[in-house]
Amino acid sequence: MNVNPWVIPGSLQNLPPAGGKIPGFHFVFRAGLGVTHLYVTHRMTLTVDRADASANLRLKWKEKTSRADALPETDWVCRAGEPIEVIADFPGGLKPGQHHLKLEIISGGGYGGRGESGAPRVLCEFEDELA
């Protein structure tokens, strides 16, 4: 199993039902060493078991929530270890059992000469079991 030290075990959970239906799921990961410049995200994609779950993706950091496609409107620069919650629409939710999740961003760049190729960069990839 691919173990990502920045994942918070057990944080993968379905969202509470709304109108009798589970609208999606959420999980928490930690920002890696250095700084993570979420505010220069062009695009963010989430796959769950290799299926796309990127529509209406939201992030929550320091009690603030932003749509993934509106991150340039924020000032989110996360430092090592800070927890970031990812909230995804996934009608019906995830079934109990093992799931593989991968969160990627296409970033505009970063501080200190950090150029970007325009290629997706994995922010977080892990497998976890939903009870």
């Binding site: 505010y39 062009h42 340039p72 409107e73 760049g109 970007e116």
Partner: peptide, 15 residues
């Protein structure tokens, strides 16, 4: 730029 906008990829002027 409204509330915030980015364009292209840093250190790649052609983008």
């Amino acid at each position: 730029y409204g509330k915030g906008a980015i364009f292209g990829f840093k250190m790649k002027p052609e983008t």
